[in-house]
């Protein structure tokens, strides 16, 4: 894995979502992609890889995305975490923003949304 390329951590329990996100990201740059399928493994991989950007689902096994976000922010306060969830309820939005999320994207996402984020961050 090249250290020159930005690292993006995709956290979602759905293999399909991770695959689609990887396919999408490939169109906008050359990244090291790391995948996590549970809340707990998201945190462990976050600590291990120190990603430049995180896409984080909310509803995940063993630890939800909001809790995972708080733990990530405690490790690295300036990390860019994009919440990516089908359940963008008012309470989830508020909790995510209060915890320091950089942005919130409601699934299913549009490619242009991902492109916009990538262009802004990298």
């Amino acid at each position: 894995m090249s250290s020159n390329r930005p690292t993006i951590l995709i956290c979602d329990d759905s293999l399909l979502v991770r695959k689609k996100m990887k396919d999408c990201l490939k169109e906008y740059g050359d990244f090291n992609i790391v995948e996590a399928s549970t809340g707990q493994s998201s945190i462990e991989l976050f600590k291990q890889y120190e990603p430049d950007l995180v896409f984080l689902d909310i509803v995940m096994p063993d630890k939800n995305g909001i809790e995972a976000l708080k733990e990530m922010m405690a490790v690295k306060k300036d990390v860019k975490v994009i919440m990516l969830s089908s359940s963008g309820t008012k309470s989830h939005l508020k909790a995510a923003m209060d915890a320091g999320a950089h942005d919130f994207i409601q699934k299913p996402w549009e490619k242009s949304q991902i492109e916009h984020i990538i262009r802004n961050i990298f």
Binding site: V59, S86, S87, T89, K107
Partner: peptide, 11 residues
Amino acid sequence: NLHNGIFLVNM
């Protein structure tokens, strides 16, 4: 998950 998520947003 997507369908239920949108339902939750509507609610």
